[in-house]
Amino acid sequence: MAAPSPRPVVAVVGATATGKSALAVALAQRLGGEVVNADALQFYRGMDVGTAKVTEAERGGVPHHLLDVMDVTEEASVARFQEETRVLFTEIRGRGGTPILVGGSGLYVRAALDVLEFPPTDPAVRAALEAELETRGEAALRAELAAVDPESAAKVADARRLVRALEVHRITGRPFSAYMPRREYAAEAAPAVQLGLRLDRAALHERIAARVDAMVADGFLGEVRALADRGLREGPTASRAIGYREMLAVLDGELTLAEAAEQTVVATRRFARRQETWFRADPRVVWVDALDPTLVEHAVAAVAAAAASSPAAPTAPLD
Rank of each mutant, 00 (worst) to 15 (best):
V163Y: 00
V288P: 04
Q194T: 05
A76H: 08
P317A: 12
T237I: 07
A28G: 11
P123E: 11
A228F: 01
V87R: 14
A112T: 06
G104W: 05
G103M: 02
R136N: 09
G96W: 10
E83D: 12
K20A: 00
G46I: 09
E75K: 14
D229E: 14
R182S: 13
W287A: 00
Q42C: 09
D292V: 11
R201I: 08
L27P: 01
A186E: 02
P123K: 08
V216W: 11
T315V: 14
P63S: 12
V115C: 13
K155L: 15
A301K: 06
L197A: 07
V216Q: 07
I171Q: 11
L66E: 00
D200S: 13
V286R: 13
A111L: 06
R170C: 08
D218F: 02
G46L: 09
E132Y: 09
L199W: 03
F176Q: 05
V266I: 14
S310F: 00
G103T: 06
G243P: 04
G14V: 01
L88H: 00
P123D: 13
E276K: 07
D158L: 00
E83M: 08
P236D: 12
L145Y: 02
A24N: 05
S21R: 00
A290H: 10
V54Q: 07
A260W: 01
I171W: 04
G106N: 09
P8F: 04
L129E: 07
P120T: 08
V87T: 14
V193E: 00
A146F: 09
S105T: 15
D114F: 14
G33P: 04
M180R: 15
L101D: 04
G104Y: 02
T135R: 14
V224H: 01
A307L: 04
N37S: 09
R59G: 10
A187Y: 03
T55Y: 10
A203T: 12
A15V: 09
G50M: 11
D213K: 11
A159L: 05
G14I: 01
A258L: 09
T90Y: 00
R110A: 03
D158F: 05
Q263I: 03
R280M: 12
G104S: 08
G231N: 08
P293S: 10
A249E: 12
